[in-house]
C-alpha cells in the first residue's frame, strides 16, 4: 500500500506542473484557432466556446495529459526496470522470494490508473478555465457567456468519459513500460532502446485506444 502511495505521488503530483503548463497552452491554441477558422468560414465565432470545450473534454485534455505522462512516467519506468534487469536486481528479487511483477508492476499500475483519472480530471478543468480566460481576454466573451455556450454543447458525462479515458491511458503506460523494461537487453544501448520503444509503443497505443474509446462512448451520447 505504501508503494502505491509513493508511486501515486510520483505519477500525479510530480507530473501535475508540466501537464498543467502544457494543457494551458493547448487551450489557448485551441480557442484562438477555433475562433480564427470559424470567422474565416462562417463569419461568426459565437459557437467557439462550445466547440472548444467539446474538443477539450472529448480529446485534448485526456490525450495530451496521457502523452505527457508517457514521456515522463513511462520513459522513467522503462529505464528503471530495464536497469534493474541488466544489473540482476530482478533476479535478486526472485531469489529473495519476491514476485517482481507484484513488487514492481502492480503498485505502478494502480498508481497510473488512479493518476491518469485524476490528471485527466484536473487537466480538463484547468484547460477549460484557461480557455475561458483567453476567450474573455481575446474574444470578448464574458465568463457567463462562455459557460452558457459551453453548456449547450457539453454535459457532465463528457467529463466522466474524459476521466475514464485518462484511467485507461494510465493503464497502458506501466504495462508497456514494464514489458519493455523486463525484456531489456544488456548495456546502456539496451536501456535506451527499451525506453524509446516503451514511449513509442505507449503513445501509439494511447492514440489507438483513444479511437476505440471514442467510438465506444459515442454510443452513449
Amino acid at each position: 500500500m505504501k508503494d502505491i502511495f509513493v508511486q501515486l505521488e510520483f505519477v500525479t503530483w510530480q507530473s501535475l506542473p508540466v501537464i498543467l503548463f502544457c494543457v494551458c497552452f493547448a487551450a489557448v491554441v485551441t480557442i484562438i484557432e477555433s475562433s480564427f477558422h470559424m470567422k474565416l468560414v462562417v463569419q461568426n465565432d459565437a459557437l467557439v466556446p462550445g466547440f472548444a470545450a467539446l474538443l477539450i473534454l472529448r480529446e485534448l485534455g485526456a490525450v495530451v495529459s496521457a502523452l505527457l505522462l508517457t514521456s515522463r512516467v513511462g520513459a522513467g519506468l522503462a529505464a528503471e526496470v530495464g536497469s534493474m534487469k541488466i544489473t540482476e536486481q530482478i533476479e535478486a528479487l526472485k531469489m529473495l522470494g519476491i514476485d517482481p511483477v507484484r513488487f514492481l508492476v502492480v503498485p505502478r499500475f494502480v498508481a497510473c490508473v488512479i493518476g491518469g483519472f485524476l490528471l485527466s480530471l484536473i487537466a480538463n478543468l484547468v484547460c477549460l478555465y484557461c480557455a475561458m480566460l483567453v476567450s474573455e481576454a481575446k474574444l470578448s466573451y464574458s465568463s457567463g457567456a462562455f459557460i452558457t455556450s459551453m453548456r449547450a454543447f457539453v454535459t457532465f458525462q463528457d467529463l466522466v468519459f474524459a476521466c475514464l479515458k485518462g484511467a485507461c491511458f494510465g493503464a497502458v503506460i506501466p504495462l508497456v513500460s514494464c514489458y519493455f523494461g523486463f525484456r531489456c537487453k544488456s548495456g546502456a544501448e539496451g536501456v535506451g532502446l527499451a525506453t524509446t520503444n516503451s514511449v513509442v509503443v505507449s503513445s501509439v497505443l494511447i492514440i489507438v485506444l483513444d479511437f476505440v474509446l471514442t467510438f465506444l462512448f459515442s454510443h452513449f451520447y
Binding site: T87, E88, Q89, E91, A92, K94, M95, G97, D99
Partner: peptide, 23 residues
C-alpha cells in the same frame, strides 16, 4: 513453475556478478 521454485530458491542464496542491490 515459479511458485514451485519458491522452496528451492528459499534454500539457495545467490551472489550475483553485479552487487544487485536495490538502489
Amino acid at each position: 513453475s515459479e511458485e514451485e521454485l519458491f522452496p528451492v530458491r528459499r534454500k539457495c542464496g545467490m551472489v550475483f556478478q553485479h552487487p544487485a542491490l536495490f538502489d
